Simulated scan of single mutants.
Amino acid sequence: MRKQFVIAVFALFVVSANAQKKPNLSFQAEIANRNGDTIKILNRNDGKEVRKIGINKQGIFKDSFAVEEGIYMLFDGKEYTQMYLKNSYNLKLKMDAKNFDESIVYSGAGSNENNYLAQSAVSESKYDYNSLLALNKEEFDKRLVEKKTADNLKLDSKKLDPNFVALQKKNEEKSLAGLSKYHNQILEANKLNGSASPTFDYENHKGGKTKLEDFKGKFVYIDVWATWCGPCRAEIPSLKKVEEKYHGKNIEFVSISIDTAKDHEKWKGFVTEKQLGGVQLFADKDWSSDFIKAYGVTGIPRFILIDPSGKIVKADAARPSSPDLQKQLDSLLN
């Protein structure tokens, strides 16, 4: 009788313990034309690796692990996509890395939320932000309210996890606030157009120092960037193409790094490793450099276009990835 009692108590303890244990996230991915044999789940806020998943013999990335509910990034070795993860989800992803965002389809528990993120990424990539940022303040504020309303309607019209909806609305609010701040910076920067440009005298990656006056008689397209800046690095391939197209024309392409002094060697190595073209310079006091402060640079990448006489054409010029840049350069150089 005592033995049976002990067994019963033990069985009750096991059942209780199992009931308290939360199920892990179950995730698997089938990726056509994959960019590598591992994928990484990264923390959205700091980019730190949360999980690394290798491919199995069946060509599938599969794993089960505990997560803190929230938004993460999936990195396939080349591109990123956002994911909403929580324990108890059983997510299955199918995609073609050659048609990255457009091909993403999720199934299983948690698929509604993650398909929403994937589809939103495609919609956002097609949104005409250049036209939005070119508006005056009154029209910009009006369009921003319209965009917020439309985005919230999409969230509320679908059967989505309430926690996800609340988090997504918070993130979108933060994103729109950042966009509004950026627009205000553009309006302030545009006041500098037509005036004489502030100058600089910075270390050149090839040796010695280079100042703005060294380019007198030429247009100068300046890229203010840093090695740690993801959006800055994303512009590099487009910048290389623009440099190649206008090679031999009356224009110099100048990149000014605002990395801190402690990352000086990292900058030198990055420029060499990535075979960056143009004139590569290192600002003397990162964000506090006089040239950077004079232009009111508070976010990067930032692009500046100066004419042959040293006057500012655009204090907040179009990015290399924007067709507007080549349109403007064609009008100036041809």
Rank of each mutant, 00 (worst) to 15 (best):
L281W: 00
F282S: 01
I251T: 00
K262E: 14
V254N: 01
K268S: 11
K241T: 14
V271M: 07
K285M: 09
T272E: 13
W267I: 01
V271N: 04
F253R: 02
E243S: 12
E265P: 02
D290N: 13
W287S: 13
D263P: 07
T260W: 04
G248N: 04
T272A: 15
V279R: 04
D290H: 09
Q275M: 09
F270P: 02
I258T: 08
K241Y: 08
S257L: 06
F253P: 00
S255P: 07
G277T: 09
D284W: 06
K266F: 06
F270R: 07
D263F: 10
K274G: 03
D259C: 10
E244Q: 09
K249T: 00
S288Q: 15
I251C: 02
G248I: 01
H247Y: 02
I256C: 08
Y246S: 08
K262Y: 09
F291E: 03
Q280L: 13
V254H: 00
K266M: 10
V279M: 08
N250D: 11
G269C: 07
L281C: 05
L281Q: 01
A294G: 10
G248Y: 03
V279P: 01
D284T: 13
H264T: 06
D259L: 06
E243R: 09
K249S: 03
F291S: 05
Y246H: 07
L276Y: 06
V242S: 03
V271L: 12
G277I: 05
T260R: 12
K262R: 15
V254R: 01
H264P: 01
G269V: 05
F270S: 06
D286G: 08
Q275Y: 03
